[in-house]
Design a protein around this nucleic acid. Structure first.
Lengths: 148, 148, 148, 148
DNA sequence: TTTT
DNA sequence: TTTT
């Protein structure tokens, strides 16, 4: 109860989204996102880049697979989730991810062409409408916390 | 294109939600929300309260009618919208509202009983589940900006 | 007490910042910001633009005067404030503004040259460092709500 | 360049803040924060709690040491930072933390008494003013990314 | 009044 | 591994 868990990021994709299809026709897309900030330290300009693991599920993953690609600038809203797992040597590890809830493409017009990287090229591209420049993409996951 | 318009508020309702039913079975709920902040000025503690006009549509309005009431503490996410209209004397006026997209009840447990104020009392109360303490309420308005 | 009043916007300036200097060497900058979103209605693509009145004070206003200009894409964080005033005919009016707390320039590289519009051209430009692309600009207004 | 890295949390402290004093009179406070959400799955109410590692520096850490304690409800704004380190066995590990930039106490009035847990009890308590209920605590870290 |  |  009583909780807000919200992340807002604007950054560039470090790689094309990696798309996997799970049982039950569930799509998952994931990619690293860089958010950089710069500041002065001792008179020198320092740029610090933070890398975030972004995960998108179902419909949002499908859209990500079509429109997002390495280098694109994107606004992402989501929530933090930390998973624990064991690596191959059996050591417990933690991974913190941002589970995206919606995203908006930002940046120049040429960024708004459908992505054509090896990861997400496919024949259905023509059936997909052009992404609205700056359009917000969100998908109802039927996980709405409604009281009925 | 290229736009983010997001408001995040935590505050108390100044009144019970006012609920109206428009043609097409559309519900609208609206209420004032106070967000206060305090700061020191010239050694004196100043408390400044800002009032916001909150509007909720459709399913979210229905939920608001059940669970929100004067005095409750609530987290609200939404977007800004400024409407212009003419008052009775024909003068053009502007009103800026926050169109809520979701909300979460905060505060003590006793705040989470269904509201029973004159505004939102009705027979269906018993059919409504208890609100989850801190549960997030959001409703898909079928306005998702999906490209298909 | 108990309040959060936060606005997050990404949009384009509709005009150059209008800069005023008040008594006490206080600078105020203000400008309209457009946030647009598009959605489908009845099979047609609708674009809806919302206009926001942005106000920046003191040091932040000085920076805005240098680096912001009509057309630029900017991320802004701030809070809502509604002022009431009387217009020339003596009618009470309300104006809701976003008092900015910090901003970050977004967009293409060419957007990061110092602004040279009529509003903010001045001789001091060369003394100003180049804005960091995507650098965050914030100024401590000595209004921190610290308990001491 | 071009980056926004923002986290907004509302949750309860899982423990009293752990306060450390580094060389140079630098204070660091850290504590776990729980944000819970509940949703329906297969007709059953599921409550899912996410734990976040919160870190506060310098002046903000000092304030946290005074006013925050296990169980308190707090609104926190900050940014994500992932550190890598080697554990005692020499295995590389990652830890994602939220570096807080400001916080606001939420909840009932009785929550706003100075904390008196073992962690943060000390003689200076009387010199500290009462925290404003819902007061926002922020401290300028002299890390402002100003271009001058 | 912005932008695409 | 992004971007400027």
């Amino acid at each position: 109860m009583s909780g807000i868990n919200k992340v807002i990021l604007v950054g560039h994709l470090g790689k094309d989204p990696e798309v996997r299809h799970l049982e039950g026709n569930v799509t998952v897309a994931s990619f690293p996102l860089a958010t950089s900030e710069s500041y002065n330290k001792d008179g020198k300009r320092i740029e610090q880049t933070e890398w975030h693991n972004i995960v998108m599920w179902r419909g949002l993953a499908d859209i990500a697979a079509k429109y997002l690609a390495k280098g694109k600038l994107v606004y992402i809203e989501g929530k933090l989730r930390t998973r624990s797992y064991e690596d191959k040597e059996g050591h417990k590890k933690y991974s913190t991810e941002i589970v995206a809830e919606n995203f908006t493409l930002l940046g120049r017009k040429t960024d708004f062409e459908p992505a054509s990287s090896s990861t997400n090229q496919n024949e259905e591209t023509e059936e997909m409408p052009k992404p609205e420049i700056g359009g917000k993409y969100a998908v109802d996951d039927s996980e709405n916390d409604l009281p009925f």
